[in-house]
Simulated assay, not measured.
Amino acid sequence: MPKLTGKDVGEIGYGLMGLTWRMSPPPQAQSFEAMRTALSLGASNWNGGELYGSPERNSLHLLNEYFTKYPEDAEKVVLSIKGGIVPGQMKPDGSKEGIKRSIDECLRVLDGKKFLDLFECARVDLDVPIEETVGYIAEYVKAGKLGGISLSEVSAKTIRKAHAVHPISAVEVEFSLWVTEILENDVAATCAELGITLIAYSPLGRGFLTGRYQKFEDLEEDSYLRTLPRFQPDVFGENIKLYHAVEDMAKQKGVTPAQIALGWVLYHSGKPGLPTIIPIPGATTSARIEENMKPATLSEEDFKALGKILEKFSVIGGRYPEAMSHHLFV
């Protein structure tokens, strides 16, 4: 069983972003039901963010409410929260003042209802050396206010610099059939070498690999996905070919494309030269969570077949708009 900060967690975690970071978030009762379902099925590594919503309403507020109602669940969950940003903006702030503000705010809103197991800066502040930022966070770990430190969207070089200052517990990066860079840019290999767990966010390609969206027009009018290069009308038709190829395999195996996609991520976990990898699919309904918690078991032949699919159907477009791309793998 995987571990984070010395605590056992399931092989699949749970991403909380969709419960608060959208124009019309689900009702509290639906969110609570989804959270309880995830935990009951073994998804005990929960991943949220101070930036997932507004300063007045984000993951932390929902978590406070959840653990107020279900205090018995607090010890069962290993919680990771992203912060280190200017409030209300998507601008990284890795300064001493910025880190102190962010962690103190996270702890204030949690109000002792849940221990903060992991804190990570959502992105690296290009104006502050990572060694300094990690040093500021480490003071909270030493004081017993945090369980450990995680990094997000960082390069192998940055991981090494940070780990030299204080042991890094986890590195969160996007990883899926849709996004495979970490297998080629030394991020996964470096995590394996240093014994760092890799947290794979958006393992279902932001919903693309579930088949929910068959064309650009299927995206909700207020969807953030409409801003992403890979979802644009001029490339959507080409990119959907990858989904259909995975769909064909799923039909043959009697599972869903999403279960194939999650099985593919898990197939890499702990393989020679690769770290423990924990995917954290997000979902707002119990039904979707139940599906995600039953990943397909892939054989070596299945894995090779998916490799051929990836060679044949290259994904077109960047992961984020150009203005945000300079914060990836820095």
Results as ranks from 00 to 15, higher is better:
Asp127Cys: 13
Leu110Glu: 08
Glu153Tyr: 09
Ile168Tyr: 08
Val134Trp: 03
Ser150Gln: 08
Arg123Gly: 02
Val141Leu: 00
Phe119Gly: 03
Asp104Leu: 04
Ser155Met: 03
Ile149Cys: 08
Phe119Val: 00
Lys161Asp: 02
Asp104Met: 05
Glu153Gln: 06
Thr133His: 06
Asp127Glu: 15
His166Gln: 12
Cys121Phe: 00
Ala164Tyr: 04
Glu120Lys: 15
Thr133Lys: 04
Phe115His: 12
Asp127Thr: 14
Val141Ile: 09
His166Tyr: 15
Asp111Gln: 12
Glu105Met: 09
Arg108Ser: 13
Tyr140Glu: 01
Glu132Val: 02
Asp125Ala: 07
Ser169Leu: 01
Phe115Lys: 15
Val165Leu: 02
Asp117Arg: 03
Lys157Asp: 10
Val154Gln: 08
Arg101Asn: 13
Val128Pro: 01
Thr158Phe: 05
Lys114Thr: 03
Cys106Arg: 09
Ala162Met: 07
Ile137Glu: 06
Lys161Glu: 14
Lys142Gly: 01
Ile130Gly: 07
Gly147Pro: 00
Ile99Tyr: 09
Lys96His: 13
Ala162Cys: 11
Ala138Trp: 00
Ala122Asp: 05
Ile137Asn: 05
Ala164Glu: 05
Pro167Ser: 09
Pro129Tyr: 10
Glu132Phe: 03
Pro129Lys: 15
Ser150His: 12
Ile99Ala: 10
Ile149Asp: 00
Lys161His: 12
Val165Gly: 00
Arg101Met: 15
Asp117Tyr: 02
Ser150Leu: 14
Val124Lys: 14
Ile130Trp: 07
Ser169Glu: 15
Asp104Cys: 03
Lys100Cys: 10
Leu110Gly: 08
Ala164Gly: 07
Glu139Gln: 13
Ser150Phe: 14
Thr158Pro: 01
Ser150Tyr: 10
Ser169Asn: 07
Ala164Met: 01
Val141Gly: 02
Ser102Tyr: 06
Ser169Cys: 06
Glu139Leu: 06
Ile168Gly: 04
Arg123Val: 03
Glu105Ala: 15
Ser155Lys: 05
Val154Ala: 09
Cys106His: 09
Arg123His: 03
Lys113Pro: 00
Glu153Met: 08
